[in-house]
Write a protein that binds this DNA or RNA. Sequence first.
DNA 1: CTAGTGTGTCTGAATATCAGGGCAACGTTA
DNA 2: TAACGTTGCCCTGATATTCAGACACACTAG
Lengths: 78, 78
Amino acid sequence: MKTQGQHFRIYTPASLGAAIRHYRQQAGLSQADLAERTGLNRTYLSDLEQGHETEQVKRILRVLKQLGVRMTLEEADW
Amino acid sequence: MKTQGQHFRIYTPASLGAAIRHYRQQAGLSQADLAERTGLNRTYLSDLEQGHETEQVKRILRVLKQLGVRMTLEEADW
DNA sequence: CTAGTGTGTCTGAATATCAGGGCAACGTTA
DNA sequence: TAACGTTGCCCTGATATTCAGACACACTAG
């Protein structure tokens, strides 16, 4: 029944964070909920959603950009 | 003139690495070339392509999986 | 054979990151 | 008002990661 969810193009840590926040809220989860489900720290998720500039993400995105590749996030509906 | 390149679904650090390697080779670049262009260390790229299990990438993929979101890489042809 | 290229891997030092605990601010609800 | 849920943010110690530089191996070209 294809809700045909939107998709996000990821260019920066900030857009990655915004997308994650979107999907988390869409799932009706709090940061604490998601932290528990993933075994991660809530502070980490907070930072992640805010696009807290992490070197690793920036590095990977830099590589992809250099290669002319774009990253996309979309609902999986496996 | 759509070369209609293939796309990659990223589930693990290994699949991310494989995709990056694919695009790098397609671009006709050596690891050293890409390292120079991105300002990164060649060793890092080597590890990245091999899917060297990095906690950070795994964490992010874990979050996305938990949210039912999939990551895709594809040629940008901006 | 020799030189050059591409890649994997090792080391140690320098950085970056994460978890855990806590607190403040805000909005909502009773 | 008080209680609660949610989120941003700070701190600290423990970990994970990245870098530089070097070396070995495989492969190819000359």
